[in-house]
Nucleic acid binder design. Sequence first.
DNA 1: TCTGGGGTCCTAGGACCC
DNA 2: TCTGGGGTCCTAGGACCC
Length: 393
Amino acid sequence: MFVSGPPTILHADLDAFFASVEQRDDGRLLGLPVIVGGGVVLACSYEAKARGVRSGMGGRKARELCPDAIVVSPHFEAYVEASREVAAIFKRTAPVVERVSIDEAYLDVRGLEAICGTAALRRTVRGEVGLPISVGVASTKALAKIASGLAKPDGLLVVAPEEELAFLHPLPVERLWGVGPATARRLHAAGLKTVGDIARTGEEALMALLGPHGGRHFHAVAHNRVVRPVVTGRRRRSIGSQRALGMPGKRPDELDPVLAGLADRVTRRMRRAGHAGRTVVLRLRFDDFTRATRSRTLPRPTCATARVLATLRALLADARPVIASRTLTLVGVTVTNLETAFGQLVLPLHGADGAALDAALDEIRDRYGTHAVTRAALLDSRDTLATFLAPGE
DNA sequence: TCTGGGGTCCTAGGACCC
DNA sequence: TCTGGGGTCCTAGGACCC
């Protein structure tokens, strides 16, 4: 029989993050309904939430619900900076910190006095960064995340080990991370409304309902048996960029500048981060919100703009039949199968000279699209080369 | 809920290899 | 010549999250 451990995992989540930063930076917004973003609500203050505004909602709908809302455009640099400051506080608080997005993180608080450590954490974030943050503490990540959600806004919820199942089981299935509209529909169709309902269902039946992986996973979650550790520094697996096309939808032959812009943006970011990738994915979305993707895996990783662009053009040609009768509304590119450029690049150069060096130089230019690298720089040292290609952060 | 931009993970079929 | 079972990679699509 499984026995829960002590509450050692803390989930910290900044409240209405973008909107809170805007309110902090412009005192006139305090206490008012604030919407960040124009066409779509990126974030909204609790005053706007009270009126039914939600993030992801269309801007028109949001203004209908809340005509007196103040709409501000996002200031991403400010969000990134605030996120960094908060992360620094996390690192002072706990040895192991897992940042899951710009506004949330898990902390392994084993060995800390969970409750007073947590109170201090929230006070520090408020005092030093000027932002409200909610915290949940439990023995597992899944439960800590639910707890922080229920603690919002600006709250704290610690779930004692002996209360975990009693806390978890009455919740609607939608509270579980990974249960979205489609999974909720399937569960409801089978008469499962609460997490307790899932827990009382056999694993076999759940696997039949949600597939082998989903069934096993949610069965374990419902018994609070998923004990994934807090891990620091996960490496990124893909990097992408997309652009909504203005109405009316563009014809395929008008897309080339868009592809070029995407290839440029994404490869620039890859080079700055020291990444190269082997698989290029072209993403398309149509006016009826259906989607299509085309992908190509290259023999070698690249972050060269020209190579990615050429691949995108070929993929677009592949997709012509799919596009033919429909109206495109969005084009995107994702590069996956990432590797870090750094190690791959430097290794083959070791001890190279003459023809081997020229070959390496060609390879680098081809793979990484860098024209800043010279023969002299290559000869110079590993470190010099690193300055051209090392991760920006 | 009529929709932006950035991601992660899973599934399933086909190709290919042993 | 017919055939099994297993593994890996690639492609396309789907679901979900912030």
